[in-house]
């Protein structure tokens, strides 16, 4: 079987399994998995930049939040329907990633990390500053009536799960398609050896900017969907913790693999879920896992699969 066919089977099987789980999972885990799929979409967006292009951002919460507020603000204040609001969330993410990317990509290395962190902090503070519209930390709650998309009531658990699955599947296939296209292969080349890629005649800056916009827009899609599916947009989603989490998910699941973000988000979600049953200090687990991964398994789960089972894992 060719690598392409294998990849199609593997990722198709994941989507089919998630669909099958819709009918068998108990309510609690059913709800969790819906959440995980949206968060995994966010992680896939992050992975496009970190895993495939080799750019470590510490500010992706700004894109997630751009999608979330780009959707929730028009719904709350302008009475927009969820469909157009979803699009305005995407547009907000695309625009912000274009501007932030064009500026941040003038820096390299550690400065890039700090600049993205600072931009995200500015966005977070902006959400707090305009409390009159955003309701700051308390956030905006979307009413049931505001969450009916094309006749589908997204506050219903079953509809919500399937909507999350559609979002996840579309972004999974998009990721897969993107990294197998010439554009994605150039991103990988930039990750591996930027100077060489440039001396092959590739416009490195333009490709990186393209990666930031693709990554930021996918993250915004996850943010907008999260707000719509779970009926809430709060400032905490713009905070630094939501910039760190996708990094953790992708590191754990395997940076630069299409399936890694889902695995990482799933494991982390249940790890935190279980730990928070014992202590309020559950974020300590996040810290320990981050350190342990960096020290002992920098390639994550996906990297191990690639090393032991199938080198061609995309």
């Amino acid at each position: 079987m060719s690598d392409g066919a294998k990849a199609a089977v593997l990722h198709g099987a994941l989507i089919a399994a998630l669909f099958a789980l819709h009918f068998v999972l108990p309510a609690y885990h059913h709800g969790n998995l819906a959440r995980v799929m949206v968060l995994a979409t966010y992680a896939m967006g992050y992975n496009l930049l970190f895993g495939y292009t080799g750019l470590l951002s510490l500010g992706h919460a700004m894109f997630f939040a751009a999608g979330m507020y780009g959707m929730a603000l028009p719904v709350t204040h302008l009475g927009w329907a969820p469909g157009p609001a979803l699009l305005s969330g995407l547009a907000a993410g695309a625009l912000l990633s274009l501007v932030a990317g064009a500026l941040a990509l003038r820096t390299v290395g550690v400065a890039f990390l700090i600049v993205t962190l600072m931009f995200a902090q500015a966005v977070y503070l902006t959400v707090l500053y305009f409390a009159e519209w955003t309701n700051a930390d308390d956030g905006l709650v979307l009413q049931r009536a505001e969450r009916v998309l094309w006749g589908l009531d997204l506050s219903d658990a079953g509809v919500r799960y399937l909507a999350a699955l559609v979002l996840f599947s579309v972004c999974l296939v998009l990721s897969l398609w993107l990294v197998r296209r010439p554009f994605g292969k150039v991103l990988i080349a930039i990750r591996e050896n930027e100077a060489r890629a440039e001396m092959l005649g590739y416009d490195v800056f333009a490709h990186k900017l393209g990666a930031v916009v693709a990554s930021g827009t996918m993250s915004a899609a996850a943010g907008a969907a999260y707000g719509l599916l779970f009926g809430y947009a709060g400032a905490s989603f713009a905070g630094v913790q939501y910039s760190i989490l996708p990094l953790l998910w992708v590191l754990l699941g395997g940076a630069g693999t299409v399936i890694g973000p889902f695995l990482g988000a799933l494991f982390t979600f249940y790890l935190i879920d279980i730990t928070s049953g014992f202590t309020t200090a559950y974020m300590a687990v996040v810290g320990v896992v981050l350190i342990a991964l960096t020290l002992f398994a920098p390639q994550g789960i996906g990297g191990e699969i690639r090393r032991r089972v199938w080198r061609g894992l995309p």
Binding site: A195, R196, A197, E198, M199, L200, V204
Partner: peptide
């Protein structure tokens, strides 16, 4: 990168290939 597009090619003094990619992909790029 624009000069390369105009028809230059350059090989580095210190070997510079995409170490974690296959030889095929190196040339395919």
């Amino acid at each position: 990168h624009r000069r390369i597009r105009e028809g230059m090619a350059y090989t580095f003094q210190i070997t510079s290939v995409f170490a974690r990619l296959s030889c095929r992909e190196n040339v395919a790029l």
